[in-house]
């Protein structure tokens, strides 16, 4: 990947951020998962640079963001950075920027490009049987599997690289779907709370899934609050993360949000066991294996809940959302396949 690194060197950016790009000393020692990305990421093109400059220094944004867009990676990082304001924000950005009207205009333009692309690629045929269609989409995920590779062949360095990439989502695991909750009613709403309650530790702070992952990272010697985790993430990871935020933040896309949840859970249980076995095979810390072992059992439950108790009643009550439910599921599978293809190709080179 020629993803990042050199771009900003030709564009000196006198900003307030720490010159090293790492966290100031004062932020060290925060509890795991408290803040995963404290400083804005490195730009990957003209648009992401303009967005980050606007966030940090209030530099004016381009009138037409798509005119300065260099490539999809530039778009995805710009969009990821704007979305992050809704989760944890950045230490070098005023929290009020989350609702900055200029930024929201740019976000809308970028979202329209991304959503149109996802719809063109992943729209599914109509069906009366959403439950079967969701299981079929999850089982259609028959491409090369990262979990298979981790279980049997991956090197320690490859697994650590993958864990750093997974951190972009796992450190905010289940958060994007939580946006969808107030947009539901009745049975789907109650079942989503049931599922999310388990994700967030069922009342036990030591069982919150995103914190289990943060502890696993720390045991592997990876700082969960390092900006590098995002700076290293390939565009495929940003696309996965942005799809979740896009679906989660728009009430209009509640069907896609829940379809994505269903496919994510339905493609997690068996791969999580493979991940745990690979982590144990390589002698990596048990804390990280434990994160995956937790998901073997949890996601075997969640997939049934998500498909039968959340998506099915949602579509029963709002039949016009069936297409978006299947779209969200297909996007989940397609974007994971993209990452697997990219990484397995890189690793086989």
């Amino acid at each position: 990947m020629t993803s990042n690194g050199d771009f900003s060197s030709g564009h000196p950016r006198p900003t307030r951020r720490a010159p090293s790009g790492e966290r100031p000393e004062a932020f060290r020692g925060r509890p795991p998962g408290y803040l995963s990305h404290v400083l804005t990421p490195k730009p990957r093109g003209r648009l992401s640079e303009a967005v980050i400059d606007h966030l940090v220094d209030r530099a004016p944004l381009p009138a037409d963001p798509l005119e300065v867009l260099d490539h999809d990676e530039d778009l995805q990082l710009a969009l990821w950075t704007v979305y992050e304001l809704a989760y944890r924000g950045f230490d070098d950005v005023d929290d009020a920027m989350e609702w900055d009207p200029d930024l929201l205009r740019v976000r809308r333009d970028l979202e329209q490009v991304f959503e149109a692309e996802l719809r063109a690629r992943c729209t599914q045929p109509e069906t009366d049987d959403v439950v079967t269609a969701l299981f079929d989409i999850a089982e259609s995920d028959d491409g090369p599997s990262l979990a298979h590779h981790v279980q049997r062949k991956a090197t320690k360095e490859q697994v650590l690289q993958l864990l750093r990439m997974r951190s972009v989502y796992h450190l905010k695991e289940a958060d994007p779907t939580t946006w969808t909750l107030p947009r539901l009613t009745g049975r789907a709403r109650a079942a989503l709370v049931e599922l999310q309650y388990d994700e967030f530790g069922a009342g036990r702070p030591d069982r919150v899934h995103q914190d289990l992952f943060a502890r696993g990272l720390q045991a592997c010697g990876i700082d969960p609050a390092s900006r590098r985790l995002v700076d290293e993430a390939p565009v495929q990871v940003l696309r996965q993360n942005n799809a979740l935020s896009l679906f989660g933040l728009h009430r209009r896309l509640r069907g896609a949000s829940l379809g994505h949840l269903a496919a994510f859970e339905a493609t997690s249980s068996v791969p999580s066991r493979r991940m745990a076995r690979g982590i144990q095979r390589l002698g990596l810390p048990q804390e990280m294996a434990d994160y995956y072992l937790e998901h073997v059992e949890a996601d075997a439950i969640h997939e049934q809940l998500a498909i039968r108790e959340i998506c099915a009643p949602l579509v029963e009550g709002e039949p016009h959302l069936a297409g978006d439910v299947l779209l969200g599921a297909a996007v989940c599978v397609a974007l994971e396949a993209d990452l697997a293809e990219h990484l397995l190709e890189e690793w086989s080179a």
């Binding site: 309650y197 388990d198 069922a202 249980s269 068996v270 073997v296 059992e297 996601d299 075997a300 049934q304």
Partner: peptide, 26 residues
């Protein structure tokens, strides 16, 4: 049970019996 909802294996091949571990899909 330790969770708000639990899944009991019915295919009898789970490695975490009596709980489901997704093995039925294989």
């Amino acid at each position: 049970t330790t969770r708000p909802v639990s899944a009991v294996c019915r295919c009898l091949r789970s490695a975490t019996s009596p709980w489901c571990d997704g093995t039925h899909k294989l």
